[in-house]
Amino acid sequence: MSYVLIVGAKSDIAKEVARTYAKNGYNLYLAARNVTSLEDLAIDIRTRSGVEVHLKELDITEYEIHQDFYDSLEERPLGVVTVSGYMAEQKEAQVEWAKSLNTINVNYTGTVSFLNIVANDFEKERRGFIVGVSSVAGDRGRKANYIYGSAKAGFSAYLGGLRNRLYESGVQVLTVKPGFVNTAMTKELDLPEKLIAQPLEVAEDIFKAQQNGGNVLYTKWIWRYIMFIISHIPEFIFKKMSI
């Protein structure tokens, strides 16, 4: 059975995405930094689903090794899901350049570097799928997290362009925009309960949208409408708001 490569495999969303693809019979490459910490998850997935799971060391911000990394995979993956994400505290990121830079590199630059390589290969092979997990935060910059949001905005635009380019080659590109998800990233935030998705829900939405040839997925679905409204608030009002 085909392999799916999950980049940024240590996140809570990635864990459920991995389980969901495995449950449906796909073998997995799980790529992350300090990947040995994923050994328990690898055992979990093998035990649950009986598929092959390989752990791969990868730092998404080390651009120069991306090509070698991709070439070293035993079998070319049928699909790639990038879940890499880093959200520094906005107030810290706006005064500490290192945190801003890391936010941009993990969410945008590194992922672009990696997906360029994947896209070139898939385009040549005329098959495959790319799932990029972006964020609703990229739909409009807000003072609460615009550094993270701007990196995700760039990533969403990148995925849109990639989808346009790869359409002719029959390669699917799915942009995923989660709203609030109950993960380590959001644990400290006080969020409205009804809008929070569980990582498993997000993973199931992603799998379904990918299998159905989807383009842009908001999860939970209600975020499509929330963000539509937020995006359409006139700037002269929006700039005075705190949301």
Binding site: D40, L41, I43, D44, T47, R48
Partner: peptide, 9 residues
């Protein structure tokens, strides 16, 4: 519930 790994079969 988050403590949800399968360990062996």
């Amino acid at each position: 519930k988050p403590h949800d790994f399968f360990l062996d079969f």
